[in-house]
Simulated assay, not measured.
Amino acid sequence: MWHIGKLRNGVIFNNDTYNCNSVFNRFIIDYQITNFVLQGTDKGKSPMVDMRCSTSIALSWKPPRTRFLKLNTDGAWKNSEEGGGGGVFRTNKGEWYFGFSSKYNVVSALAAELYALREGINYARAIPVRFLEVETDAQAIKGLLNKEPEDMHHELAALIIDVGRLLRNKDMTIIFNHIPRETNFVAHYLSRYAMDMHIGHKPHYTVPASVKAAYDADIRAMGAIA
Rank of each mutant, 00 (worst) to 15 (best):
G86M: 11
E82A: 14
R220M: 14
H178Q: 05
G200W: 05
E95G: 11
F13T: 07
V23N: 10
L59Q: 11
W96T: 00
A214D: 04
A76Y: 01
V207H: 01
F27D: 08
G164H: 06
V37D: 12
R65W: 06
W2Y: 06
G75A: 10
F24P: 02
N169G: 04
Y193V: 00
D218G: 02
C53Q: 15
I57R: 13
H188Q: 02
Y193P: 00
L69T: 09
H188V: 01
L166G: 06
F131S: 06
H198N: 09
A109L: 15
G5K: 11
G99M: 00
E119K: 13
V106D: 06
S22A: 15
V186R: 00
R192S: 02
A221L: 15
F131R: 07
R168G: 12
V129F: 07
F36I: 11
A157P: 03
C53F: 15
V207A: 02
I174N: 08
V207C: 05
F98C: 05
T173M: 11
E82Q: 15
G143K: 07
Y215P: 00
Y97P: 00
M197V: 01
H204Q: 00
T34L: 14
G84N: 07
D74I: 01
R181Q: 13
F36R: 12
D151E: 06
F98I: 03
F176K: 08
A213K: 02
